[in-house]
Design a protein around this nucleic acid. Structure first.
Length: 104
DNA sequence: TTAATGACCTATC
DNA sequence: CGATAGGCCATTA
């Protein structure tokens, strides 16, 4: 059942606080660099919203998702800000400062 | 069962 | 270097 999803959830759960990761990165870390779309679906299902911080997962542009499963997109922005994430005036997350893992 | 779509990304020209 | 096109997995209808 939760075989492919479990890997994704595991990766998302490993995301440190105050940091954001991308679907492609999570998928790649999960062991499948061709699941960015499945990752989105996995988070869409979000069977454990209390253990799967989807708000820490953003797309390659740093833009959050519009179909947030927690309660609201604005709530996601607050959560990230509370965690210490910086938001750009464009409404995107500063991947250059919170992208995880830090590609350096 | 087949077909289409989707919280996307990577590769190539 | 920059831009464009296509493709992959899974799910749902």
């Amino acid at each position: 059942m939760a075989d492919t999803f479990d890997l994704i959830y595991e990766q998302v759960r490993k995301i440190p606080r105050g940091r954001v990761s991308t679907y492609g990165a999570v998928a790649a870390m999960a062991g499948n660099p061709r699941w960015p779309r499945v990752v989105g679906f996995a988070l869409h299902v979000n069977p454990e919203p209390g253990a799967i911080p989807c708000h820490r997962v953003v797309n390659r542009f740093g833009g959050l998702s519009e179909a947030f499963a927690f309660g609201g997109v604005n709530m996601q922005r607050i959560l990230l800000e509370e965690e210490g994430v910086t938001f750009l005036p464009d409404g995107r997350v500063d991947l250059s400062k919170h992208l995880w893992p830090d590609t350096k």
